[in-house]
Design a binder for these strands. Structure first.
Lengths: 169, 169
DNA sequence: GATTTTATGTCAGCCTTGTTGACTTTCCAA
DNA sequence: TTGGAAAGTCAACAAGGCTGACATAAAATC
């Protein structure tokens, strides 16, 4: 298409870069992020966990065996903060921490079957909303969505993100 | 269109709805939101304010004269929580609270020149990143970005969002 | 082998921002 | 006049960030 009406094609009035349009984008991020977290939040409440636990489980699921340090840099929090969350997850039997086979200082993190079950429940809820949004918007919109989000990330986080991206599709 | 180049081809294979793709979308939201808030956060730190203050100022700027109750429903927090934030903003002379002219129970909120200056500083930083992302991704991607975000919102928030959207244009 | 660095964990304390509950004041409207 | 909505306030609490200090084990380096 090339000129569907907007395309990066030709005249390209740059109207999409006005402050008004940018402000709308900002609000869209704000409201959408609320929706994005709403479903997992409701589930977490039942288990007496918070978003921090969800994030930890998500990234342990994504990279089983990841070390504490890895997780720290991905999540961007302090080790004290992460430790509090990790401790409860380990104590509750959702996460297993194994001493590193080569470097015994490291702890490698894994979801237990129980942890995997909760992660799946949370992820399914979140993917449900995502799927509905994707379906409503269509594949082309989704591609644009991903492009803009990626461009919005801090370079370091973009690298983290792309690591998964490459792995996956 | 239909085949801009995004799509997994033509028959619309629905490949964009796989769990892998959805998981990537979820991570994209997570990492992008971090970038989205990073610049204002740095500024806020200097003024000893937090994100909550930014949000309040943003929506007061967007709808000058809005009432406390309006703001509550937009922000989705309790009045006690909002009140704490609002109080510091009022005490610091960034926000003015005027008794409602018709209904004197209501308080109508306005940014003072000082508040407007800070709001502008924060907004400019945030728009800067947004602009860069928009420019990098192009107008078509931006349209898709907005479509997906909108579909992701809770219906009530979508209405709030569209109120502004229509106003602007 | 001694020293330094790295990875992790933990204690203590602080801050922001969210929550509930209780209560008051103001004031519109039935 | 009275009920109830809107707003504000106080108190207490929790989650989840933060810093700083310190302990331990193991790896790496000198």
């Amino acid at each position: 298409m090339a000129e569907g009406g907007v395309g990066p094609g030709s005249g390209e009035s740059l109207l999409f870069l006005t402050d008004e349009q940018l402000r709308k984008g900002i609000e869209a991020m704000f409201f959408a992020y609320r929706g994005f977290t709403a479903d997992p939040d409701r589930i977490l409440e039942r288990y007496e966990y918070g978003r921090a636990h969800h994030r930890a489980m998500h990234f342990i699921h994504r990279s089983p065996g990841t070390t504490v340090n890895n997780l720290l840099s991905i999540l961007g929090v302090t080790k004290q903060s992460l430790n509090r969350v990790l401790r409860t997850l380990i104590d509750d039997g959702l996460v297993e921490s194994r001493v590193g086979p080569r470097d015994k200082r490291e702890r490698h993190l894994y979801l237990t079957p129980k942890g995997d079950a909760l992660e799946r429940e949370l992820s399914e809820a979140q993917r449900g909303r995502m799927r509905a949004a994707y379906r409503a918007a269509g594949p082309q919109a989704v591609a644009g969505f991903r492009q803009v989000l990626e461009a919005m990330m801090e370079p370091e986080m973009r690298r983290q993100y792309q690591t998964l991206k490459d792995g996956g599709a």
